[in-house]
Each structure stands twice: as structure tokens, then as C-alpha cells.
Design a protein around this nucleic acid. Structure first.
Lengths: 163, 163
DNA sequence: CTACCTATTGTTATATTATATCATACTAGT
DNA sequence: ACTAGTATGATATAATATAACAATAGGTAG
């Protein structure tokens, strides 16, 4: 892990933290989802780190905050967040990250740096369209799309050149 | 698991088996890759089933054929095949499948049926283009793209209607 | 052809990730 | 307060994956 993690560019972290939690609150009002203490704290942890975190890493944090310290505690909270579009699961890394475009209809597209493991989430509407077309050729009804791109982030590409 | 697995449509399985193995042989000649007995057998297993298989499932088959019966045996062979484009890893399922479009430059796009777990591999050149563009906006250098689409295959969609 | 080097395989052990299950506690609606 | 549905806590275990080292096979320079 490195210090390149918070996406690949500087950003106002207070703003994105606020946006995500605000969106969650809205779902509480609008859809009646239950943002219980564990779930809320789990989301806060993901947002505050702003990177892909393993379930056991999240679990450690939760335990430190006085929640249960057994795997299901973390997995259940994470699953809940994913189900409601507040977080994503990044299969390639067996990890989770808060959704940084909450509410927007989008198929998450993850840019995963192989050097520093930073993960950026990009909007992907044109990609989604292309995917739908490919699926249509197989008479396949799309429900969820997960796109994971492996490569090198600008920071690490720069590091490599310096050597 | 169900009987919908071999992609979503009937196909001439002899042909696709032949194509894949033929391509592998070509790599042996062209690139000097070493298609050892375990590796060859692993590819044959994946092709003959024509579906996503877990590493331990592959391992059982290999062991039955007299190869080692410890996890690394399967993982190493599978990793080799993935590296050389002869197989793909489907993260969502922690599973592997023979590449059915060997040799074609393509970013694999998997259509995964949530009902029967069948997996189809679709070519995805337009998708790839869209992905490259999204990545470019982040100055991200793409190396590998993995697209996994969850949904319902035509067979299962039909089944659902019948009820 | 032999000695060496490298890639591959076999084996043991263990790490990491994830889920099933059941008991307990909370929440909302009546 | 009662009850039906949810959510949490805790125990146990399953499923997936890798590290590390020994043994073997294959190619190649001398």
C-alpha cells in the first residue's frame, strides 16, 4: 500500500466524505433503509480511507470501535452497503470501497494500479452502453456490471521513469 | 450448477475444443511456451467442461489423472494458462475458464447467469475502446481489462416465465 | 556426455477470505 | 406489551490461495 491511494489526484476529502454520508441519509429517508451503527461506521471507515479495504481490515476497525470482532460482522455490513449502492466490491482484490458516485446510475469502472494498489472509480456510461450491446447479442439480461482495469496509475508511471 | 452451462447456445464442441488446443500448440511453436503434461491436461479439462471451474475442482481431476493433488499444482497450471491467454480468471466466481477466442486481441467480457451460473465469453472490442477512453481521462495506462456482467441468460429467463 | 543452470513439479504447511448456523437483542407495527 | 421481522453476536468451519523448500526434468555450454 502507498500514499497514492486517495484516487490518483488530490481532492477535497471533506467534500466527498460529506457527499457520501449525505446520500446515505437520503436513502434512509427515501427508501427506509436501516443505516444502523455498524453499517454507518463501516461506511465511514471506507470513506475515510478512500481506498480498497479487505473485510478483515474493516473488521479490525469495527472491533476497535466496540462492535463485534467476528467476520460476519464486517461481511454483513459490507454486503448491505454493496446491495444499496453505497459501496462496491472489487473482486480482483477481494476488497471493498465506498462508492464515490452515489446515486448516479453507473456501472462502476475501477482502475487498479498494479504498482501501488490504488483504486480509482471512474464513471462509465459509454462503457455501459457497449456492454449492453454485447450482452444483447447473447439475449442476456444485464443486472450488474463490474469492470476492473489493471494497469499503472500516473504517479507510479512517473516513479518508474525517475529510476 | 445446471445443464445450461456450455455457453447459452448449442455449439459444435469438437470444433471449439480443437481450436483451443490447436492455438495452444501454435504458441508452443511460435513463442516456445512449454505446454507440459499438467498444463495441457488442465487446459483440456477446462475446455472439455466449457464452463467456469474452481481451482479445487480442476485439482481433483488432475489428481485423478495421476498428477499431484495439492493446491499449488492446480493454481500454477491455471496461472500459466491465464498468463498466456489460454484461460481466463473469473474473479466474481473464484473460477477459471478456457479462453474461447484464443489469439484474438480482446478484453474478455463475461456474461454470468445468476440463476444457473453459466458463463459466456463475449468479444468486446467496442467495450475495450470505451474503457481505454475512460482510463485516459485519469492518465491511467491500461494493461488488462476484465469485465464481468451479472444477469440472466436466455434459458433461465425462459424458465422463469414458464412458472 | 557431463556438469551446470533453470524451469517445473511435488509436498508440507499455513495464510487468507468467506459462510453456515444458532442464540440473543432490537424495531416497527398492531 | 406482543409479535413478526430484522439485525447482531458468537462459534465453528468451509473455501480459496500462497509461501517455502525439496526433488526432478530439460536444455546447453564446455
Amino acid at each position: 500500500m502507498s500514499d497514492h491511494s486517495p484516487a490518483f489526484h488530490d481532492h477535497n476529502h471533506d467534500t466527498c466524505t460529506h457527499d457520501v454520508l449525505h446520500h446515505a441519509e437520503e436513502l434512509v429517508r427515501r427508501d427506509g433503509i436501516r443505516l444502523t451503527p455498524v453499517r454507518r461506521r463501516t461506511l465511514e471507515i471506507l470513506v475515510s480511507e478512500h481506498r480498497a479495504m479487505g473485510a478483515y481490515e474493516v473488521l479490525d476497525r469495527l472491533a476497535a470501535d466496540g462492535f463485534g470482532n467476528q467476520p460476519p460482522v464486517a461481511y454483513r455490513a459490507l454486503e448491505f452497503l454493496v446491495e444499496h449502492g453505497l459501496a462496491h466490491r472489487i473482486n480482483r482484490l477481494n476488497a471493498f470501497a465506498a462508492c464515490m458516485h452515489p446515486g448516479e446510475a453507473h456501472s462502476p469502472l475501477f482502475l487498479i494500479c498494479q504498482a501501488c494498489e490504488a483504486v480509482a472509480e471512474a464513471p462509465s456510461d459509454p462503457v455501459r452502453t457497449a456492454v449492453e450491446q454485447a450482452a444483447a447479442q447473447h439475449d442476456f439480461a444485464v443486472e450488474r456490471v463490474n469492470i476492473e482495469v489493471l494497469g499503472t496509475c500516473p504517479a507510479c508511471a512517473g516513479d518508474a521513469k525517475e529510476c
